[in-house]
Design a protein around this nucleic acid. Sequence first.
DNA 1: CCCTGTTCCGAAAGCGCTTTCGGTCTAATA
DNA 2: TATTAGACCGAAAGCGCTTTCGGAACAGGG
Lengths: 346, 346
Amino acid sequence: MSKKSTGITLAELAADLKLTSGTVSRALNGYPDIAKATREKVIIRAAQLNYSPSASAKRLATGVVNTIGLVLPHMSSTITDSFFVKFLEGAATEFAKTDRDILLTTVQNNESEVEVYRRLWRTRKVDGFIVVRTRSDDERINFLLENNIPFVSHGRSDNAQQYPWYDADNQQAMENAIDHLANLGHKNIAYIGGANDYHFSKLRLAGFNAGLTKHNLDPNQPIFSGPLSEAFGYQCIQQILSEQPNTSAVICAQDKLALGVYRGLYQANLQPGRDISVLGYDDISASAYVNPPLSTMAPEQHLSGAICAELFVLHLKTTDIAELQRIAPVRFIKRHSTAPPPNHFR
Amino acid sequence: MSKKSTGITLAELAADLKLTSGTVSRALNGYPDIAKATREKVIIRAAQLNYSPSASAKRLATGVVNTIGLVLPHMSSTITDSFFVKFLEGAATEFAKTDRDILLTTVQNNESEVEVYRRLWRTRKVDGFIVVRTRSDDERINFLLENNIPFVSHGRSDNAQQYPWYDADNQQAMENAIDHLANLGHKNIAYIGGANDYHFSKLRLAGFNAGLTKHNLDPNQPIFSGPLSEAFGYQCIQQILSEQPNTSAVICAQDKLALGVYRGLYQANLQPGRDISVLGYDDISASAYVNPPLSTMAPEQHLSGAICAELFVLHLKTTDIAELQRIAPVRFIKRHSTAPPPNHFR
DNA sequence: CCCTGTTCCGAAAGCGCTTTCGGTCTAATA
DNA sequence: TATTAGACCGAAAGCGCTTTCGGAACAGGG
C-alpha cells in the first residue's frame, strides 16, 4: 500500500554496488563463496546506506520467523504480582541475544487457549512457544506435543518427562519449610494450598507430606485447598482456629494466603509469629512490609525467563530433551513470622 | 529449510477448488468482484481444509504487519509491581480484537533505547509502538515524531500536544491529596518525589504546589526528590524528623517511598497515621497490608493498556491527534495512614 | 440482431529476500 | 603450455500471498 519511508532495499543496495542482489545477500550472510574484499565492501556500503533487511521478506524466504509466542493466561496479573514482568524481561533479553522477539498475546473471550496456540502456529507467526502456569493435565502442552511444536514450559505437568521445562523445586521447598518448623518444635502444622489442577500445587502438597513423614509427624494435618487469595487464607485460618485449636503453625502455598491468615489472626487477637507461626511462599513484595515481616520461600524470578529462553534455543538444536529440564532451588527467607510454638502448645 | 508440517497453502487450496490463487484470495478477503456462490464455496472449503494464510507472506505482500512494538524499559519490573502485566494484558486483549499482536522486547546492554526502536522499525517488524514510562524530554518520542512513526504513549512528555497519549491525571491527584490533608488540618506537609526527568514526577510536584496555593499554605514546604525506593523514603523521613520537626504529614509520590517512611517512623517510635500522616501513590499491592493500611492515590491500571491500544488503532485512521489524548482521574483510597494532626501540631 | 455494460474470473506482476546452479576467470598442477 | 580445480559471482527460481488488468461470458437495451 503506502510506501513507508523506511530505508533501502536489497536490490537497491545491490544496484548501488553494481552487484546482484543474490551476491549481496550472500555477502551479508557470510556465505563462503564471496571474496573477502567484496564482502567488506558490501558490509561497509550497507552500513553507509542504512540498509536493514525486511523481516517479512526474510521470513517468507527462510521459513523461520525468529519469534516465540507467549500467550498470557487469563488474569495473570492477579496471581503473583511482579513475577510476569520479571519473567518477560528475562526472556526477552535472552532472546534478543539471538535476535528473536516475543510475540505476546492473550486469549479472547470467544476462543479457547489452545485455539490461540493453534492460530499462532498455523499462521506461522511463531517458531514455537513459552508456556507458563502449567496444570497437571495441561491441554496446551498436550496440543504442542501432539503437533511437534517446539516449546519450553515454565513449570511442569504430569507428562513432564516428554518436553523441556524449567521449574522451581516446589517439593523440596515445602520439605524445607517443614524442616524449619519441625526444628522449631512445631507438631501441628496446617497447610493451605491451591487448587490441585495447577501442578505446582500438587508438588507443594507432596513436599508438605514428605516433610511430615520425614519428621515423624502425624500425617493427618489440616489441609485446605482453594484459590490462592487473601480471602481464602482468611477463611481458612478462621476454620483452623475454631476447629483445630492445637495448630501452632500454618504453611501457606502462597503469600497472599498468608496475608489473609494474618488478618484472621489479628482479628482473633493473636500475633503471627508469636502465637502462631505463619510461613508463605513466593515472596511477593508485600511480604517484607507486613507486620511481622513474613517468612517465606522465594523462588528465583528474574532468571527464570532467561533460562526458559535459553532452553528454547537449545531445544531447536538438541534432540535430547532430558538435558533441557532444569530444576531450581527455592530460597528460604527467614523473617519474623516463624518462631518456636508458645509453651502451651508443647 | 524444513517443510514444517503446518497446513495447506493458498495455491493448494486454489488447486483443490479448481480456481486461481488470486481468485481465492479475493474471495477470502471480500472483494466485490467474486460471485457470491463461489465465495461461499471457497470459504467452506478453506475451513474444511484448515487453511490459514501465512502471516509472513501476507505481510510481505501488503506491507503491513499488524504488530505493535513495546520495548520494556530497563528494570521495569522493579518500578511498580504488577502494573506492567496488567497493562500488557489490557493492550494485548484490545489489540487481539483487530488481529494485532504485541512484539515485546528489551534493550540490550550494548545498544540504546532508540536504537531498538529504530531497528524494529527499519526491519519492518512493527507498524508502530506503544511507549511507556515517559520522560519530560523523551528521546524515544522525539525519534518517533521525527520519523513519522505511529505510536501512542502511556504518559506524557514536554511536547505532549504533538502525539496521542493516555495518562493519569497526576496533577489533579496531588491537588486532591492536599485537599484531603488540608481539610484534616495539616499545615506543614512534606513532599517526597521522584527524579524530575520522569514527566509524571514533574506533574505530581506541580499538583502539590497547586494544592498548596489553593489552600493558602506556606509554599516553602520540605521537598525531596530521588529514586522512588523504600530506601529513599526512609532516608527522607529521617531528615524530616530531625530538621523539620513541625511537619505533620508527608506525601509520597510512590507507595514504596511511603513504606520507607513507615520504617523511619517506627524506628523513631512514631505511629504513621496517628503521629504523622502519610499518603502514598500508586496503590501497590503491599499498601493495603501494611500497618496501618496506607492511604494512597490509585491510578486505574488494567484499562490503561486497552485504551492505549484502542488509541493506536484509531491513530492509524485519524489525523486529528487532539482527539487521541486521554486523561484519566486518579482515585483516592482512604485507609488509615492519614488523620488529623495531633494536638501539639495545631 | 448488434452493441454496450456488467459480472466474474484468470493471468501475471510484484513484495524483498534466500539459495541453488552454472559459468567465467584465475591459479595451480603436470 | 595444456589441463584441472577452485574461487567468485550472476541468473533465476522460489517463498505464499495481494492486487491490478484484461478478457470471456452473459445480460439487457435499442
